[in-house]
Amino acid sequence: MSFDVSLIFSALPKMLMGIGLTFQLLVLSGVLGLALAIVLMLMRVSGKWYLDWLAQAYIYVFRGTPILVQIFIVYYGFPQLEFIREGILWPIFRDPFGCAIVALTLNTGAYVSEILRGGVLGVDHGILEAGEALGLNRRQRFTYLTTPIAARLALPAYGNDVISLLKSTALASTITLADMTGIARSIVAQTYAPYEIFISLAIVYMIITFFIQKLMARIERWLGRYTVRTGQT
């Protein structure tokens, strides 16, 4: 058994060809998931019991089952249903990329909505009362007071979820997608060299994670610029 460094050099470029797909999965699911999360969060804080309950049920199901199962249900399970095969969305569900996006979006939407709700609940009530006392209506308070403050409060947890999403994209390899992990697995199947391939792939993911964390830290600093007491009066 030997550690073949040259194998890393020949395999790495092939794996990095999958990085485009990895990022497509990450960004597309991230953005769509965030939009879904905002809708779910608004449903939960709307005060209308039926919206709240519906959102809670959705979140409960998607946070309580493994993402891999969700991916399989969409990719393998949906085509079995006639109304999917004959529906207008069939082009999406027929394609593994479409299925991966759908599953990842539905999953991350559930997690992020709870993170956003945590931010909204964390806003100091006194500030909202001051807004009320000044005559601001509910929508104005939510737009100008709650949203900016909640966004800053939610950011650390959101950053963690983005990294989770990155790791979940690797599961796309289980439904034939040629992302970085998918390519790596096929190389390992040919070369029987799991250490070299998987370790170098892990390092690639760790580097991407590092940059995402740095980006999040920068956004955190910018959003929190009013919390820094630079220079007293």
Binding site: D124, G126, I127, E129, A130, G131, A133, L145, P148, I149, R152, Y226, T227
Partner: peptide, 14 residues
């Protein structure tokens, strides 16, 4: 009706 609170309640992000 104007109100002044014990804990000021200024909007911290503005």
């Amino acid at each position: 009706v104007g109100m002044v609170f014990q804990s000021f309640n200024l909007f911290p992000h503005m």
